[in-house]
């Protein structure tokens, strides 16, 4: 079997990481804000569940996801029956795996940012006539933007390199292609060290680029603050 081209590997990996980050952003921001500002029953359990993927082997996470989302799993079977949607071993499966694995990193970072914001600034915005939603978008979110950008960068980089959960839920060739991580694994398996090295180098370069981009956005954020 011919290995997929380097560019197709990069494109597939980027599309998965980007989609995962896009999914994580709204969900993660909402959850991070909830955890930072509200007290509710079962909060500790929610916190523990969110951080769980960081604490257990990614392969185990992938296995649990496979049991849930596979065609015979409770969620997978329902989706298949009701909508004819199959998740396991598809591009979507790779995105789901990346979301679950990168989500905790984002929530931790965004939550810290929200917690570091003086809640009196939000109260002040409300006394100045802004409702809860407008206050969130004009005060809370901009003030937490550093943590959000940082969290998004971390999540994106994590999604780029995701292997354990992805290989369980999406297989080694999600959507018929390879991600950088599964590609390295396959190349080493067939003794193609040159390809493995090339993919590793690209992987490192992409992660570095993501982090530099995040830093540049933070720097622009700092300068923009005076306008």
């Amino acid at each position: 079997m011919n290995s997929p081209s380097l560019s197709s590997v990069v494109l597939l990996t980027l599309s998965i990481a980007l989609a995962a980050t896009i999914v994580i952003l709204p969900l993660g921001i909402a959850l991070a804000y909830l955890l930072a500002r509200w007290r509710f029953p079962g909060k500790r359990i929610v916190e523990a569940l969110i951080t769980l993927p960081l604490a257990i082997p990614p392969v185990a996470v992938g296995f649990v996801l496979l049991r849930l989302l596979g065609r015979r799993g409770p969620i997978g079977a329902f989706l298949d029956r009701a909508f004819g949607i199959q998740i396991a071993f598809t591009w979507t499966a790779a995105v789901v795996a990346a979301v679950v694995m990168a989500f905790p990193l984002f929530v931790i970072s965004a939550r810290q940012a929200f917690e570091a914001t003086d809640p009196r600034l939000e109260a002040l915005a409300r006394t100045l006539g802004r409702g809860r939603a407008r206050t969130f978008f004009t005060v809370t979110l901009p003030l937490g933007s550093r943590g959000i950008v940082y969290g998004a960068t971390l999540s994106f980089a994590r999604a780029l390199g995701e292997f354990g959960a992805t290989s369980m839920l999406a297989g080694f060739s999600p959507a018929g292609g390879e991600t950088l991580a599964t590609g390295i694994f396959s190349a080493v398996n067939i003794g193609d060290d040159g390809r493995a090295l090339a993919l590793a180098a690209v992987s490192a370069a992409l992660s570095l680029a993501a982090i530099l981009l995040g830093q540049a956005m933070l720097a622009r954020d700092r300068q923009g603050a005076c306008r």
Partner: peptide, 11 residues
């Protein structure tokens, strides 16, 4: 407020 809170992200 006592410490004259200003929005730090705005000029």
């Amino acid at each position: 407020p006592q410490d004259a809170l200003l929005f730090p992200h705005l000029g």
